[in-house]
């Protein structure tokens, strides 16, 4: 597709990020979740997965879904710089999605974590994978994090002992708005990595192949009665 001059001016500079190496995690129910980077071509299935949750106020799924939807759409349409999306899939069905952005080579900006499957710590595993990507793969020194739900606050701010940077406001603030900004530093990551981040690499080809073609969930525990035809 030809890109006209005006469109070129609207796009961020192309600055490819180092890829996230796929891994697999055995969930408590014995199933294997493949965690890998999502590609731009998969945006349709990602947005389709997120969309039904726009109407779910419980545990702030609505706001997380709405913001993640817009962030992934912006990534697809070249309106945000250096965003990456990781997906967790069980037998090819999307179990959770996380997205984030590199601000500069030393700073990451964690965007959202959406657990579709609940009760198996899928969100916690994907958040850990996102931090692994920022610090271990991309080599950033720290990641700014905010929480939009009490569950997120407990999982990230408390369990990772994130540094409260709200005293630095407005000079230091997360891109998602005025909520208190916290930071995962490399030191904190190294302290918590062993108990928070897991996964086996390399993923055997036959297991990786199960996540080749991502599928939207047919049902959502957050949406009783919903069934995708």
């Amino acid at each position: 597709m030809a890109i006209d001059d005006l469109e070129k001016k609207l796009r961020p500079p192309a600055d490819p990020l180092k890829p996230y190496p796929a891994k697999m995690i055995t969930l408590a129910n014995g199933k294997t979740m493949v965690v890998r980077e999502a590609s731009r071509e998969e945006v349709g299935v990602l947005l389709g997965t997120i969309y039904p949750l726009l109407g779910c106020p419980k545990d702030f799924y609505d706001i997380v879904a709405a913001r993640m939807y817009s962030e992934i759409l912006a990534w697809y349409r070249y309106r945000v710089a250096n965003e990456f999306v990781l997906v967790g899939a069980v037998d090819g069905v999307i179990a959770g999605i996380v997205n984030s952005r590199q601000v500069d080579p030393s700073l990451g900006m964690s965007l959202h974590t959406l657990a579709v499957d609940r009760g198996l710590r899928v969100g916690a595993q994907l958040f850990a994978a996102k931090m692994e990507h920022h610090i271990d793969v991309l080599g950033e020194d720290e990641v700014l994090v905010v929480a939009e739900s009490p569950i997120g606050f407990k999982r990230w701010m408390i369990e990772y002992e994130l540094e409260d940077r709200s005293a630095g406001y407005p000079a230091v603030r997360h891109e998602l708005g005025g909520v208190p900004t916290y930071a995962l530093t490399r030191t904190l990551w190294e302290k918590h990595r062993r108990n928070k981040c897991t996964g086996v690499r390399p993923v055997p080809p036959e297991i990786l192949a199960t996540a080749d073609k991502l599928r939207m969930p047919a049902e959502y525990c957050q949406l009783p009665g919903f069934r995708r035809e």
Partner: peptide
């Protein structure tokens, strides 16, 4: 409350068990 089965491999034996079953 929790209608999800778990396996001994996943919560005790797998290399991920220390995180999955913290």
């Amino acid at each position: 409350h929790v209608q999800e089965p778990c396996t001994i491999e996943a919560i005790h034996e797998s290399p991920d068990a220390h995180v999955v079953n913290n």
